[in-house]
Write a protein that binds this DNA or RNA. Structure first.
Lengths: 146, 146
DNA sequence: CTTTTTGCAAATGATTTGCATTAAC
DNA sequence: GTTAATGCAAATCATTTGCAAAAAG
């Protein structure tokens, strides 16, 4: 549903869409690959600044939105106040702790084709499917009485 | 995984937790039942004001958060900038349009037990599971070339 | 050269907080 | 009476926008 892009493929994809290949975009893409998990815009910026100074947060936001359109990242489907980008582009699922707000990957074999088929039959163009579990993670359960 | 609460049950649940039964809470709960779908805090307030004047947005936010803890509503798991509360408390799924940001219910038979089991085995206390499809809805696909 | 992208500063908009007042119990 | 809940105004914080300067093609 979306394979991971190499730096060269990214450059090609950009050029193909009449977009420019900038150091910022390359570095952000590289950092995303190194993270290989979940990151907010700030967290991306933090790592990017070590490689390329003076990159601004608006650029990070714009680039993440761009990469999402190109299929290089996905916004995680989870309740929460800040956008979490997922750098894993293979199908997998998420666990969301409603106490600490943490998001963790969950790999489990689930057959989602009934949902995808139902959506597509209704005229929706599905591009991504994921399962989200909401609850309380182990550490929050330990700290809290509830 | 969470049944719909009657007004009496809500009052009991509140008292049981040492919380107070206020007209605002009762009205908001009633409005949620009438909506029976998705709503943002503003949308809840809009309907509440018709029944009880001078209710404030902070109260709506606080009450929705409270009801979430009580299991009477759920924040929809979907990428997006504003919190969408789901007043349907029976298991069902969602379709999220990445163009218009719309969220629509999706009913489809999906066996999520492998995911729930995997999460619980890892020490996570799962309370809610849902499938989220991301893509482009029919109207946005019609308007846009992509 | 032309047009996109960037960086910065300022704006926006949802959600939260502080605090005095009101209402449950 | 005590203590929690409310309303209001102000604060917070992620995300976006406007625009001039820099850089890609």
């Amino acid at each position: 549903m979306a394979g991971r892009l190499s730096s060269d493929d990214l450059a090609d994809a950009l050029r193909l869409n009449g977009l420019r290949v900038t150091p910022q975009r390359l570095v952000i893409h590289r950092v995303l690959g190194e993270i290989g998990g979940h990151a907010t815009a700030d967290q991306v910026l933090e790592r990017v600044e070590a490689l390329l100074p003076n990159v601004s947060l608006p650029t990070v936001y714009a680039t993440l939105a761009l990469f999402e359109r190109l299929g290089a990242v996905h916004r995680v489907s989870a309740p929460g106040d800040r956008a979490v980008y997922d750098t894993r582009t293979d199908p997998h699922h998420h666990v969301y702790c409603r106490v600490c707000g943490g998001v963790v990957d969950l790999d489990a074999p689930v057959d989602l084709s009934p949902a995808v088929d139902a959506a597509n039959e209704s005229g929706f163009g599905a591009e991504w499917v994921e399962v989200t579990l909401t609850g309380v993670c182990r550490s929050c359960a330990g700290a809290d009485a509830n």
